[in-house]
Simulated assay, not measured.
Amino acid sequence: MAFYDAHNHLQDERFGNRQAELLELCRREAVAAMVVNGSCEEDWPAVEELARHHPEVLPSFGYHPWYIGRRSPVWLERLREQVDRIPSAVGEIGLDRWKPDLPYEGQEEVFLTQLRLAAERNLPASIHCLRAWGRLYDLLRSHPRPACGFLLHSYGGPVEMVEPLARLGAYFSLPGYYAHERKTRQREAFRRVPPDRLLIETDAPDQLPPPERIRHALHEPVTGRPINHPANLPAVYAFAAELRGWSLETLIRRVEENFLRLFGHVWPAKLSSAIHRTTTEATANPKAPVT
């Protein structure tokens, strides 16, 4: 078995510099690869550092809409240099009309600039969207998009938009947070995601699954608050298999195919090595299926 995390933030300060320890547990849980997303200029170097020292880390760099107010006058030049310096995706980028007191002004300009960069270099883009789905669809439909496709991380839009977005090149990643009973609308949308567009994510350290599904508890060192461990990824897979009515083996196979289709051209050597390493370790140390 090999598990793939389509979206997390392993560089986050809330992990308290325990990334090497977390990754060791992820390897034992057969996590083959994870896309680690930078959110602003300040954390791009940390993402790059993780990618250079840990083969399972696939870096992605972008300006999250929550932080665009802090961007420097040369942010775009720095982003171009970043994605050219090391094989990477573009993200996390997007639109947000949900966060209180967050200005919407400027979000579309920054989003489209980054989407254009992804299209020019044919790099997958990881997109955040909250309460702006109609506008996002209009922008995606009318502007250049990466030919390889793009990821709608933690898709929370209407069920009716799944098919139109998929036709534009969207993939949809399911977080464990949607296993909470109140997330009925989001679960229904993921039942409608085409099988060849489904991906799985942890969004660690955020989006904790329900307590009964957490396999690896983790707490922020300073505050003691619970945070999401990236090694909970197999538990998210188990939830996704239940949601779709598939066997875990079927889900694992489909997600690997989808992950490699979207991201494989960016890191072919890294992903080939990750698959070989994880398969070899799984053969040497067989585990019971995740339940």
Rank of each mutant, 00 (worst) to 15 (best):
L152V: 02
L117T: 08
P209Q: 04
N122C: 10
Q19S: 06
V35W: 01
A166Q: 02
V193K: 04
A284N: 04
L260E: 12
E13W: 12
A269H: 13
L243N: 05
R52I: 01
L248Q: 15
E21L: 12
V36F: 12
M161V: 05
L79N: 10
V266M: 09
R254M: 14
V83E: 03
D101H: 14
A51W: 09
P103Y: 07
R71A: 12
R225T: 13
V47T: 08
W98D: 09
Q82N: 14
E105D: 13
P164Q: 06
A147Q: 10
R14H: 11
R225V: 14
H54N: 14
R187G: 02
R254Y: 04
A282M: 06
A179S: 10
E220Y: 04
E77Q: 13
V47M: 06
F172I: 10
D96K: 04
L136A: 14
A240R: 12
K287W: 01
R253Q: 10
R71F: 06
Q207A: 12
G16K: 11
W246I: 11
G224C: 02
I68K: 01
V290E: 15
A288L: 15
S72W: 11
V290G: 06
K270T: 13
R85I: 00
G134W: 12
L112P: 05
A6V: 01
A89R: 00
Q11H: 14
V57I: 06
M161P: 10
L23Q: 13
P124M: 07
R253S: 07
L10V: 04
G134F: 09
E56D: 03
V35K: 00
R213L: 14
R18G: 00
N8F: 03
P124H: 01
L95S: 11
R187A: 11
V236H: 04
L152D: 03
E92N: 07
E257N: 15
E257G: 11
E49A: 15
L174V: 13
L23G: 10
L168P: 09
